[in-house]
Amino acid sequence: MSATTSRLAALVKRRETSVALAVIVVIVIATLFNSNFAFGSDGFRNLLLTPSILVLLAIAQAVVVITRNIDLSVSAVLGLSAYATGRMFTDWPGAPTILVIVLGILLGTGLGVINGLLVSVAKVPALVITLGTLYIYRGIDIAWAGSTRINASDLPSDFTAIGTGSLFGIPWLTVIALIAFAVLAYYLGYARSGRDLYAIGSNPDAAELYGLPVARRVFGTFVISGTLSGIAGVMYAARYATVSATAGSGMELDSVAAAVIGGVAIFGGSGTVLGAALGAVLLSTINRALPTVGIQDFWQQAVVGALIIGAIVLDRVLYTRAQRALTKERQSSSSEREGARS
């Protein structure tokens, strides 16, 4: 019994639980204002569809942040692969859809490889490198697209179907996000190399001393992050069907915010992709709920900011409390020892 209760207590204490609860609370409140929010014809669908793209970026960000790095270029990678995907369809009529999709994703992978090489080989902080590549990738995107945009009519219907279709009532995009999430969650939780990422973020010096392949793993996380952002880009093109050069701009901060809100420590070592994904769902849902409850959606970003700051303050408070408890525990055990000795 005690094992069950303690497991239950642990579950309640987890950040993932509270973020999930927050999502439910937001949905309930919004639905009370307008029942269409969750139950309308499009309501439920949007509930699932809206967060999918941000979920991909958030879990990509989480993988990188867990190793005590950061990838600010995710939004630019998304933008570039989204535009490239659309452009392949317009410039190469009759191209097999699946091939275009694969190439769009591989573009993301390639951009991730560049980030990874710069960070792990040149040993420059990821914050600086990805700030640079954020500019570069976005700049290339804008230079390429100019003021043109890809329109729905340019895209083959079997491609846009991915954005609109569903499997057993669950939108395809959500299914893709879920699969990516599941693979990554398994990797981080149950693969040896996935656990290395936590070790590296927890104590980089010790990881080096221990003989973990730090540079290779960090490189790998940027490749994962680039690939996921590439998938997000393709999904973006499929969903909105219109792609301009500014697709996804600003989402790098949303992805960091989602990860931090979901309990991924900004200095690495702890957090899960589940938390990051839930953080993304929370952000997207709040975003959609604001107009429903009568708040202008201009305020959405302020809410995001308050949530980020709230989340890190909360983390610090919990950490301090845990530390205090540990010190007390150690004191009492050491005084016991004294007692036993005398």
């Binding site: 931090v260 202008q296 970003q301 302020a302 995001v304 900011g305 308050a306 700051i309 890190i312």
Partner: peptide
Amino acid sequence: AVTIGSLALYRGIAVG
């Protein structure tokens, strides 16, 4: 982390 938060917060208040 703090200033990514206040980046969103201050901009959010301004836009709001």
